[in-house]
């Protein structure tokens, strides 16, 4: 038993806390996507939105990072920058799919293509990001209040807790408030919502834009907080797709994303963790297999929920369909 605790303390604790921190990336991404999907819109543009959110935040940071503003203000402005850029991307998406009633899959994919591309252009632009000075803010700025700790807790900071809060708030909003109820009605059955006097388009716009803003935070978090590296931006797209998987994995329940994202990141960093244990060398091929597992599990959840066919566990009924009130 003592041996286990010692093992836990030396290896597992770090691993688990790190996984929690890593998971916040998907928490943002999938909470944002859940809000959008609950309004009946399958937004495949999330990877692009997360990328652009990251770029937006980094742009702000690179402009004000060296300005001598108080650190907390810099952090807040960075977060706002990421959120605003996410909202902007969400606006493009909702204008095309809500107002112009365009095909959601195609629009989403185009948005991802655009967002990922533009982020790379921005992040590698020498003028805008001289010597990647968005990292001029040390990641410790984001690690309030644990920044000074020496143990693994110092990995968790404001942006991590913000992710948890947003996730729980989103869950509360969706399942405990009338506005959330109205939103879910829009995604389930827009015609019914419309006849009950709900402004369907407004709900769709707001859900998509706010959802996109939240997703955008995920990109910033990953670049400047979790990784704090100037190559981090290259892998955000992959985590965007994983966030979409996570939405399905937790069956559209935001509060479960906390557990889901933890599980996903445990799997993703499993092989690196094993490598840290002395005397154990994982095979080269173990890593990709472990990284495949989140998707496999998601597929299994998708299949099981469709076999059980429990109504609450299905995607929102009108997911992917445009709503148009026919003139009768």
């Amino acid at each position: 038993m003592t041996a286990f605790f010692a093992f836990f303390k030396t290896y597992l604790l770090d691993y688990f806390v790190d996984s929690l921190a890593f998971g916040a990336t998907f928490m943002y991404g999938s909470t944002g996507e859940t809000l959008t999907e609950k309004a009946g819109h399958l937004n495949l543009g999330i990877p692009g939105i997360m990328c652009m959110g990251g770029a937006g935040g980094c742009l702000v940071l690179s402009f004000i990072g060296a300005s001598g503003l108080p650190p907390f203000l810099i952090v807040i402005l960075g977060i706002l920058g990421a959120f605003a850029m996410g909202v902007l991307m969400g606006l493009i998406y909702s204008f095309l799919t809500v107002t112009l009633r365009a095909n959601q899959n195609v629009t989403g994919l185009a948005l991802t293509t655009f967002g990922v591309g533009l982020m790379k252009v921005i992040m590698s632009n020498k003028k805008l990001m001289v010597a990647q000075n968005y990292l001029i803010i040390p990641k410790e700025y984001f690690r309030f209040p644990f920044a000074s700790r020496q143990d693994s807790l110092q990995r968790l900071g404001v942006m991590f807790f913000l992710a948890v809060i947003i996730t729980i708030a989103a869950s509360y909003f969706l399942y405990r408030t009338k506005t959330g109820l109205n939103l879910r009605a829009v995604g389930e059955n827009p015609a019914t919502a419309d006849s009950a006097g709900i402004n369907v388009s407004r709900y769709k716009y707001l859900a998509t834009c706010i959802g996109s803003g939240i997703s955008g935070l995920g990109g910033l978090y990953y670049i400047v907080d979790y990784m704090a590296s100037n190559e981090a931006y290259l892998s955000i797209e992959a985590y965007g797709w994983l966030s979409i998987a996570l939405v399905i994995f937790v069956l559209w329940r935001p509060h479960l994303t906390i557990i889901g994202s933890f599980l996903f990141s445990v799997l993703l960093s499993c092989s690196s963790f094993i490598a840290t244990i002395p005397g154990v060398t994982p095979s080269m091929s173990a890593k990709p297999l472990m990284r495949m597992l989140p998707y496999v599990f998601t597929i299994i959840v998708l299949i099981l929920s469709s076999i059980r066919n429990k109504r609450e566990n299905q995607p929102p009924s009108s997911l992917g369909l445009s709503y148009f009130r026919e003139e009768r």
């Binding site: 009338k178 009605a185 015609a191 009950a196 709900i198």
Partner: peptide, 26 residues
């Protein structure tokens, strides 16, 4: 009927009603 299938009776009843009431389903 214009009802949302996966909602409860009460949830369907309050759907779309704002009228200054507290934003709470309790």
């Amino acid at each position: 009927f214009k009802l949302v299938d996966i909602f409860t009776a009460a949830e369907n009843v309050v759907l779309g009603v704002h009228a200054g009431k507290k934003d709470n389903l309790k």
